[in-house]
């Protein structure tokens, strides 16, 4: 639908958003819900990388781990510790779900940094599904575990009585903003970083052989992006743990 010619995007021949366009992989004009697209391919590659990293690497089951096995063990231990530290021992019951989230976001982010790749997590539809899944899961879990006592999360008993109604409003709003900020933070970070790299790449292409500055800039931003993709996976997961902790222990 919203397509244009080169003139429509301005004078520069740079199209930083093109990398986010979803195209059918095997031709066809229309995208149906089942259409196999470039995103499907990269989701599949995400699964493959996770399989290599977490299943193939540990097939030796060595007592003294090989390099790849220790990577898998370190990631496992890292998330395990995060869940236990933040959500407590009861939170470990939900560790597989959180680990799935973390691995998906981390691997999708990292392979999204490959040149010419497609970054699934740069789409608000993807991160929105993740964030809504967390939000609905946590809310349902809170009510199942504590019944109406879960509402104590919004009624802060440690505050003075006069402040409590105001805090109630703030807490309710912040609770419902959670999935929004949760999803937009991740998608926005991914999109912005990739768009910036693409813009510099466009400059480099336009300047031709003397394009030292844009190339240096791409290297710098790329390094920064390596950091950002890992941190965003971490942030998404740690916030999930925090929300889970709220559901498990609503009494603050």
């Amino acid at each position: 639908m919203a397509t244009g010619t080169e003139e429509a995007s301005g004078g520069f021949n740079i199209h930083p958003m093109d990398q986010f366009v979803i195209k059918p992989l095997f031709g066809g004009e229309h995208l149906h819900w089942y259409t196999v697209t470039n995103q499907t391919l990269w989701l599949f590659l995400t699964i493959v990388v996770i399989g290599l990293l977490m299943v193939v690497s540990i097939r030796g089951r060595a007592m003294v781990p090989t390099r790849m096995q220790s990577v898998a063990e370190v990631i496992y231990g890292f998330v395990h510790k995060m869940v236990r530290d933040i959500a407590g021992e009861e939170g470990l019951k939900y560790f597989p779900y959180i680990f799935t989230l973390f691995m998906f976001i981390l691997v999708a982010n990292v392979i999204g940094l490959l040149p010419r790749s497609f970054t699934s997590t740069s789409h608000i539809a993807v991160t929105g599904v993740l964030a809504m899944a967390v939000f609905i899961f946590v809310t349902v879990l809170g009510f199942v575990k504590h019944g109406l006592g879960f509402l104590k999360l919004f009624w802060i008993s440690s505050a003075p009585m006069a402040l409590r109604p105001i805090l109630l409003i703030i807490e309710v709003i912040s609770y419902f903003v959670r999935p929004v900020s949760h999803s937009i933070r991740l998608a926005g970070n991914m999109m912005a970083g990739h768009a910036v790299i693409k813009v510099f790449a466009g400059f480099a292409g336009a300047m031709g052989i003397g394009a030292i500055a844009p190339i240096v800039a791409i290297m710098a931003v790329y390094g920064l992006e390596m950091l950002v993709v890992c941190i965003q996976a971490y942030v998404f997961t740690i916030l999930t743990c925090v929300y889970l902790n709220d559901a498990l222990h609503p009494g603050h």
């Binding site: 010619t5 080169e6 958003m17």
Partner: peptide, 25 residues
Amino acid sequence: EHYVGMPQLDPEFMGTQVFWLVVAL
């Protein structure tokens, strides 16, 4: 042709993304 605006906000892309994401997850 090049895309104008944000592909992220294009509702045409959403269905297939959500479906394949759920499958992948």
